[in-house]
Amino acid sequence: MLVIKLIQSIVKALHSEGTPAQVAAGLALGSILGLTPLLSLHNAVVFALILLLNVSFPGAMLGWALLLPLGFALDPVFDAVGRRLLLDSPALVPLWTALDNMPVAPLTNFNNTVVLGSLACTLAFFLPLFFGSRWGVARYRTTVAERLRRSALYKAVTASKLYNLYRLVHPEG
């Protein structure tokens, strides 16, 4: 069921009305939700950005769903990066001390090794992920999607009554 949902959201994101840049931006923002511990204040901001900015919402949900397992798998790496930043970088201690003693900043849990490590890694890969996925979506739409649309199976499925019934329920699917 989960896999079907995932495939459905992939298809939805790739075939949505949004431009490749919108899908990629959604994907990159969604990756922050997936890679960092969800119940953190910064994720509320990211979620608000996903809603407010004109990025692909299905893309964001896809980014979240795809990168969530990766987030779990990479937790030891994030923990190590966080330890390095918080405990083994004397030059950064004044910054952390200032943040830890200012209102609101500590509520972000920046002082947790996994939160900081995962956020730092996600932000470092944000732009590569954005540009990479924008290129990927554009390529997909000009090659694979076009060929798919021309295929006999696709035509047969989209011409079927069952599909028309489905479109009635999911008009933008």
């Binding site: 994030f78 923990d79 966080g82 405990l87 002082n111 090794t113």
Partner: peptide, 20 residues
């Protein structure tokens, strides 16, 4: 700076570091 085990959660707890 003082490190202590982070909160229990589904993800790894990590360490919470305080900077008095």
């Amino acid at each position: 700076p003082r490190a202590q085990p982070g909160p229990r959660r589904v993800r790894r707890s990590g360490l919470d570091v305080r900077f008095p």
